[in-house]
């Protein structure tokens, strides 16, 4: 089951194992320059607010009501990353506009191994965008549906779904217990495991498009497809509203726009790099790699590219690892 707590999705599968729980949250962040350079990981600037879609159903289009799930606000050209927190192994698929963010294939509920279309928790602490190359992603950037920017539109030619979709499958209990025993044995042997309120708003909504390039590995599944309990999955559709729609529908203000990457960096604030040990990364998706980024598409259709896209140098990069995978910046300390 999935419940919402403090703007986080809390997933639990007591029918599989009492420890089968994980949290998924959507972090606000800087939009990195979309200039062909590979940037380090930007900070988390706090969670996007989430609401049950059902609470605002009468103010939303009928087609949205069928989806269920939650709603979240995003400014145009705002970026997000997904933060996973789990001590129990999970396989999580993420799609935007029902296109898989790792393979570029159309959405199916089940997991695929070749190519791998899911991330493995807790090895994968974050997902910032589309896997376009081994060790390189293009940042998730919100753009209005209908203008051709989104991955969904570029790959299907249609602007139907938008938003973000996910499904999570826990590891089978038997396999988890075996894994735990193996780890305990390692520990025992002394090896350190480091590890508006009247009329409904316009139907236009937000989708996610490929932004700037960033260094991030999507880790290869070290366990194999058989360990995942695909009889017990939980899905969620995250519908994205632009800020005007959000205020009309919920009557609340969304968070203000995040700082630009340039302003953030000029203050000497940190970027991040993640070291995942020797874990192998999946190859990038050719389909996703061939797509036009937001800036490239804007130029192609004669629009002004997004502002604040100048190249920057991030001199202060904090390297984080498995033991303390934190990258949210709140004043003096980075944490998540």
């Amino acid at each position: 089951m999935i419940v919402m707590e403090d703007n986080r999705l809390e997933l639990s599968f007591p029918e599989v194992h009492e420890a089968a729980r994980c949290s998924i949250e959507f972090q606000r962040t800087l939009r990195i320059p979309d200039d062909g350079h590979d940037y380090p990981l930007p900070p988390g600037l706090g969670r996007f607010p989430l609401r049950h879609l059902d609470d605002y159903a009468e103010r939303l289009p009928e087609s949205w009501r069928e989806r269920g799930g939650v709603i979240a606000p995003m400014h145009q050209a705002e970026a997000l990353w997904i933060n996973f927190d789990s001590g129990y192994p999970f396989a999580v698929k993420v799609a935007t506009g029902k296109i898989c963010a790792i393979t570029g294939d159309s959405w199916v509920d089940h997991l695929n191994r070749d190519p791998q279309d899911y991330a493995v928790l807790p090895e994968q602490p974050w997902l910032d965008g589309y896997c376009v190359n081994e060790g390189v992603i293009r940042q998730f950037v919100a753009m209005p549906l209908g203008e051709g920017f989104t991955v969904e539109e570029q790959l299907t030619g249609a602007a139907v779904h938008g938003g973000l979709q996910l499904v999570a499958y826990p590891m089978k209990a038997v396999r988890y217990e075996a894994l735990r025993s193996e780890r305990d044995a390692w520990l025992d042997s002394g090896v350190c495991y480091a590890a508006s309120t009247e009329a409904p708003p316009a139907k236009a909504s937000m989708g996610l498009a490929p932004g700037g390039r960033m260094k991030q590995q999507i880790y290869d599944d070290p366990y194999g497809l058989d360990v995942w309990d695909q009889r017990h999955g939980s899905r969620c559709f995250v519908s994205l509203l632009n800020t005007t729609q959000w205020m009309t529908v919920t009557g609340t203000r969304p968070p203000s726009e995040p700082p630009t990457a340039r302003d953030y960096t000029a203050r000497g604030l940190p970027w991040f790099d993640y070291y995942g040990g020797d874990a192998r990364a999946v190859a990038g998706s050719d389909k996703l790699g061939r797509l036009a980024s937001v800036v490239q598409h804007a130029k192609a259709i004669g629009q002004e590219p997004a502002p604040d896209n100048d190249a920057i140098v991030a001199p202060h990069v904090i390297r984080v690892g498995k033991r303390r995978a934190v990258r949210e910046y709140r004043g003096e300390r980075a944490r998540a």
Partner: peptide
């Protein structure tokens, strides 16, 4: 606790 958890509101999954 199990009974309390059943009172907790789930995020509804629809048709998509």
């Amino acid at each position: 606790d199990e009974a309390l958890l059943r009172v907790v509101r789930e995020v509804r999954d629809g048709n998509w």
